[in-house]
Amino acid sequence: MAIQKEKNKLIQKQERAASLNYGNRPGWKSKEASQKWIFILMATIPAFGGYLLFTLYPNLLSVYYALLDWDGIREPKFVGIQNFIVMFEDPFVWRALKNNVLYGVIVPPFVIVVSILLSYILVYKSYRMNAVYKVLFFFPNVLSVVAVALLWAFIYDGSFGILNAGLKLVGIDVGNYYWLGEKSTAMWAIIPPTVWWAVGFYFVIFMNAMVGIPKSLYEAAILEGASHRQRLVQITFPLLMPIIRVSAIFLMLSMFKGFENILILTNGGPSGSTNVIGLYMFNIAFGTGNHNYGYASAIGMFLFVILVLAKLLIDKLTAGRDAEY
């Protein structure tokens, strides 16, 4: 018995030694391990290298640039936090930020609500033309922001725009009113093109998410006499909440970062009433005034902080509202 025990111990010892001794491992195992590492490296290095080179490195550089007085041509001058001090005293920054907040608070809820409603209708109402509607709703998102902005600039044109013509048809004659040319309406006029463009994308996301919700939940609700509104609010919304949260974050970020449509529709005017922080930053770096990469980078840093705060705010507002099935 004792001999058998000793034999077993010896065998175990040998096996352990064999497993630890890399050189003694069978060839196919070694090949498998190295192939695994090669595959991991090949799969990650291009993406990670690209991320390091084109995202992380420029972002870190812009942290450094934010501490410089530099126009991109002359020798940079280190100014410490001076750019940040100037920024907090800059009334144009706060005006732009106010416009961003308005834009960021109105557009995301609109886009999400309209996208969910359209998705709900197409998923749960079996129209014969469903496929056509899907393409139709998604179509604006296929267009570039520039094309969408130009299209809406024509819609809003005071002399030839279809908006004024349409209003006239229903008895509201606004004359040659230029919706983008008045401070009181310009910012509001920018919102519909943005919503129209973004709905196409989020509509597809929500529709696919809705298809994944088990039909049995709705069937049970119908049996208990739930209306469409109750099903939407009490089943669909809670189950979509994780996707709504992510969509809200993406939309909020793009509302703060993006400015292409505003650049084309109003160029920040009239009198700066549609200027947003991204456009202001862009003009400081590349506009018609003195170029100041340092100051623009400082605004970029500030924008980064705002975006992180916005993300945290959305997380907090939507926390604990998820449901699972």
Binding site: D71, I73, R74, T288, H291
Partner: peptide, 30 residues
């Protein structure tokens, strides 16, 4: 291209129509 500051990639001759109020003075000063 000016911002990239890559001499070999830069144009030999280029239009003076460049956005930026002080850019001409900066190019001259540098």
């Amino acid at each position: 291209k000016i911002a990239a500051n890559n001499d070999s990639d830069m144009y030999d001759i280029f239009s003076t129509s460049i956005a930026g109020e002080g850019i001409h003075q900066s190019l001259a000063a540098a």
